[in-house]
Design a protein around this nucleic acid. Structure first.
Lengths: 140, 140
DNA sequence: CATTATTTTTGACAAAGTCCAAATCTGGGT
DNA sequence: ACCCAGATTTGGACTTTGTCAAAAATAATG
């Protein structure tokens, strides 16, 4: 994230210490949970309420400044990278999450165009598997 | 579901009234939540504890007899149709969920083969959009 | 039928978020 | 600089979805 303050202003959001800190935290810790981010923010600006973390994350998500992903069995994760149609790879055993470029090309997934009268606006893809670390542990 | 009782026996699961009823309920109400299913079962056999609904759903899911899907902002949904690699279409505004045949062909999605050392075993795809009914409401 | 392991039930508990009202702060006008 | 209105932050209670654990009930086997 180049300039968190400018980003907020561009979206007509009043600039607050909490928002700046959360935005920086998301930028520095991709795929972190709200709780992780709260901790991170606290170490940066001293304190923030749980509710504010959620408030900020919700506003930023609504404005499209950050993206929320919600894999099964996991609290929501947040990331900085928006608008590039990438997907995610999640380890079933440890939850480790990585970005994956869209397997099929550009916004390919939306090809299930308007199925059954639905107006489709996003195809969310999660690849489930086992990460290298957990493969080793399991192998024994 | 042809014969719930036979299905249970095939998987070495003791046959109980609760299991039969839950299995029938899942079969009759695709994409229902645990709560919906509990209601449905109660209307069929009179009573069932919340925990038993979860117990049964978990066992059946583990055995691969039913499938659990967990869209964001929604409790888990269960369905009968397993092993045919279909995906889901979810309405952002009312939550209506429909099955979609895999857009790209047979188990196509797994083509992000073993990315970054992960051993991938499933590609989960959810198409997000607006269902016909909600499009009309919004249009006004 | 009697036994034993498995299920079901009940009630407490946990995690992740949301709701609400009060206190505080931001941004814009003077 | 200062004030004001509206937006944000806070703290605490609450909701939802689901799990844990122990006791009571039940299914399958001999």
């Amino acid at each position: 994230m180049r300039d968190p303050e400018a980003t907020l202003r561009q979206h007509d959001l009043p600039v607050t210490a909490q928002r700046l800190a959360v935005l920086r935290a998301v930028s520095q810790h991709p795929h972190a949970t709200a709780d992780d981010l709260a901790e991170s923010v606290r170490s940066e600006i001293g304190a923030i309420s749980r509710q504010s973390v959620y408030n900020v994350l919700n506003v930023l998500t609504d404005k499209g400044i950050i993206r929320r992903i919600q894999p099964a069995h996991s609290p929501a994760l947040y990331e900085d990278r928006v608008g590039d149609n990438h997907h995610h790879l999640v380890c079933r055993s440890c939850g480790k999450t990585e970005d994956v470029c869209c397997a099929v090309g550009e916004a390919p997934c939306l090809h299930a165009h308007d199925h059954r009268g639905f107006r489709i606006d996003e195809a969310e893809v999660i690849y489930w598997g086992t990460c290298p670390g957990c493969q080793q542990k399991t192998r024994s």
